[in-house]
Design a binder for these strands. Structure first.
Lengths: 111, 111
DNA sequence: TTAGATTAGTTACTTTTAGTAAGTGAATGT
DNA sequence: ACATTCACTTACTAAAAGTAACTAATCTAA
């Protein structure tokens, strides 16, 4: 097996985990709370928690605890995370140009 | 659940399938044969076959049969596939700037 | 004419990851 | 003391990925 590019492989390993793209898309709008993301994305608490933990470990997002009542925890992008904006924008732009109406329908019927 | 952007969701659904990114990376260099990709990527025949079939259905790649001996089958990008180049380039650029040496080591120890 | 080589897959099986739904714990308000 | 809210966990089932051995079609050489 050839070595391609280890950094690219690592990046793809991250990016190709389900929901990571949508989570980053959300967080590019600004910091969000757990429950807010759970509502806005078609992802369960279990996986959201798992992904946030992983993205925090990768230093792509950071977790901030506000000791209010009820407790408020906000997730936001680090500079490493913000640096992913062009990637998300390119995917967005491709999807607007190339993903057809039909394809969008079929994804919706699944839910 | 909010509606985010259905086209973006569809694109991410594609992109977040394991190996899709690496397959596209490979094909941006030019058309490739099945066995060549199997050698160059850390992916098994079973999944490579599955992904190529799916990408063909999505009209991102096309399959060309050359009736030689032994039979030659080449996979290449369509214009929809080539339009993904900026996405791949942005991921590549991010990975060069932000993926550390350590992270690259850890991925290699897994194999 | 049959045995071997070559490419592009497929099948059967195990392991890992994702999805669902119900439950937990800390902090507070009534 | 009891209910409420948020941010998760846990236990379980379903789907996807990984592995290895096998197949079908075509030609070539003995």
């Amino acid at each position: 097996m050839k070595q391609l590019c280890p950094r690219f492989e690592k990046a793809m390993q991250l990016f190709s985990k389900r929901w990571v793209g949508l989570i980053l898309f959300e967080l590019l709008e600004g910091s969000k709370r757990f429950s807010q993301m759970e509502t806005e994305l078609p992802i369960s608490g279990r996986l959201l928690s798992e992904r946030l933990k992983m993205l925090e470990q990768e230093e792509i997002i950071e977790r901030k605890v506000y000791s209010e009542f009820p407790v408020r925890i906000e997730y936001g992008l680090t500079s490493k995370g913000k640096a992913l904006e062009p990637v998300i924008k390119e995917i967005q732009s491709w999807s607007e140009n190339w993903v057809t109406h039909q394809e969008v329908e079929s994804i919706q019927n699944e839910n």
